[in-house]
């Protein structure tokens, strides 16, 4: 066998392995997509050919499930979390990126470390406090605790983007008599805008998918989509066609957002430990 043939065979084997791997990765997702369009009889069979129906999407928004209310809660909670987190994180990120602060490393380590605190540890005191001040089962309460998981990511991610903006334009503007605030507003923010949008989308996905906080803090009014999944456990077991329809409503927007920012996903998740 010539070297060339050997190379071709190796490449063919690799392609087969890649196709197997990606099939395994996609099958559970495809299966949910199919089940969402099956009626409740077809879903209990392993068949690929069926008459698609949109009925499930109507049912989940109707009584008694009212998924629309959960969709609204999820959207408001995730959006407000991001709207609060990004400006605060941007201010801090700029300062960490451009100045030397006393205790800077300590602050950065602390922010990094909070990301790794188990959510169960954070939520116990919040549950007790919210019970006392009446914030249980409110969107406000959920937004407050979501800030805990979103802020460290946002600060580190935006710091990474601002680190990448050259100093020259800022310095030139300062020489021309602009104040620091003007420089931030007129020069840094426009240049960092794509980065801020990326960080915002990233945090939105995290807040949207958040589960444990919502499970513990909400039970009726402020229930979010991931918790809403538990609704579809009927007397006779899981209602898979409805679960799947709800699953699509949860994951489809995140797929779109994730594809938009896919180049920054790795950097965001590792807080710049890997670029």
């Amino acid at each position: 066998m010539t070297g060339r043939q050997k190379k071709q065979i190796i490449n063919a084997i690799q392609i087969v392995l890649i196709l197997i791997a990606i099939s395994i990765m996609l099958i559970p997702i495809i299966w949910i997509f199919l089940a969402a369009f099956k009626n409740h009889v077809d879903v209990y069979q392993l068949k690929l050919l069926f008459t698609p129906t949109l009925e499930n999407f109507g049912v989940v928004f109707d009584a008694p499930y009212y998924l629309g209310a959960k969709l609204l809660n999820s959207s408001i909670v995730a959006l407000v979390t991001v709207v609060i987190a990004i400006p605060i994180a941007t201010m801090a990120a700029y300062s960490f990126s451009r100045f030397r602060l006393t205790g800077e490393t300590a602050m950065l380590v602390m922010i990094l470390a909070t990301q790794f605190v188990p959510a169960v540890v954070i939520i116990l005191p919040f549950f007790v406090m919210f019970r006392d001040i009446g914030l249980l089962d409110t969107r406000v309460g959920l937004i407050l605790v979501n800030l805990a998981i979103v802020m460290p990511f946002a600060i580190w991610m935006i710091k990474g983007f601002i680190d990448g903006i050259p100093l020259d334009t800022e310095e030139a503007a300062m020489v021309d008599g602009s104040s620091r605030i003007q420089v931030i507003l007129n020069i840094v923010l426009p240049m960092a805008a794509p980065g801020l949008l990326t960080a915002g989308i990233f945090c939105f996905i995290i807040a949207w998918n958040e589960f444990l906080f919502a499970l513990i803090l909400t039970n009726k009014d402020a229930v979010t989509l991931p918790i809403g999944l538990a609704l579809f456990k009927g007397e006779e077991g899981d209602l898979w066609n409805l679960l799947s329809a709800a699953g699509i409503i949860i994951m489809l927007p995140m797929f779109v957002l994730a594809l938009i920012i896919r180049r920054y996903f790795v950097q965001g998740m590792t807080m710049g430990a890997v670029r």
């Binding site: 990606i22 990765m25 998918n209 999944l229 699953g247 994951m251 995140m254 797929f255 957002l257 996903f265």
Partner: peptide
């Protein structure tokens, strides 16, 4: 395509 499972909520 690998981004897709990654964007899925762990609960889901």
């Amino acid at each position: 395509l690998l981004i897709l499972p990654f964007a899925m909520s762990p609960a889901l």
